[in-house]
Amino acid sequence: MSITYLDITDVGIEFDTNGSKFRALQHVNLKMTQGEFVSLIGHSGCGKSTVLNIVAGLHRATEGGVVLEGKEVTEPGPDRAVVFQNHSLMPWLTVYENVALAVNQVFRKTKSKAERKEWIEHNLKLVNMDHALDKLPGEISGGMKQRVGIARCLAMQPKVLLMDEPFGALDALTRAQLQDSLMGIQAELGNTVIMITHDVDEAVLLSDRIVMMTNGPAATIGEILKVDLPRPRDRLALAEDPAFVHLRQQVLEFLYAKHGHINVPAATSEKQSTGARTAPVLEAVADSDDDTPQAGGPSTAAA
């Protein structure tokens, strides 16, 4: 039984939007060990980003909490670095300066100026961006910007690396390159990673576990799938691997068979929250058996 590194316990969050309340998440439970790579997958609007933001400390959960290495998470910090979908580099700083901003902030007191410089260059080399240190974000491609974003996060030496659809805005080829880079970095550094993705192949390829979320509102964890494939993983070899294909099929089944329809997240008032759910938007495959042990969420009504 390995030691729990990151503990998400019974997390729920309810947003107050103009008077009416909107429940985004409830009863989210997840325990992660150090060095684990977990993917968070689910339909749009199911609250994946919200979970990530709660772990990052950018939102406060209304119920439950997050504990990292024994300490409760209440505020954002460099120990839970976030890679955003839009690289979020400072447009007026060069590649080097963007990473330097983070490094100087985190290691101002612990590393000397020379050490910091070396550390910045080391991290940029890790993502293969050491050739473009003096370029501005406007002068480099989307894939490069995302690499720099990853380098900036790695340079903060976070305990947990949080990635919110980091490769979503990139083309397929760049995405494949960055996925391989990420696997290489994770193998070398042993980061603990939570990654949100829409891409089933990406999730199966990269993760140790795939957390599949039910649809919002009041989303929760539907199923957790363990990915036992041996590392290092080669995407070309795995494409034909029966284990890989089976895992992929299981994720697809969850997403499209069991939780095929998306509920319109109507802002329910207090009175209605315990009553009947709003009608589904899309016609669904009848789902009768989606009550899983971990999920405390309500069953979706058949059409």
Binding site: P76, R80, V82, M90, W92, L101, Q105
Partner: peptide, 29 residues
Amino acid sequence: IDKDLVNVSKVMALRPMVHVRKIVVPAAI
């Protein structure tokens, strides 16, 4: 200013004055 930049600043835990000096002012220039 881009909310993502503000979030990046929060993750880096920049002190308020540093946040204004290094993020807010350049972004608003």
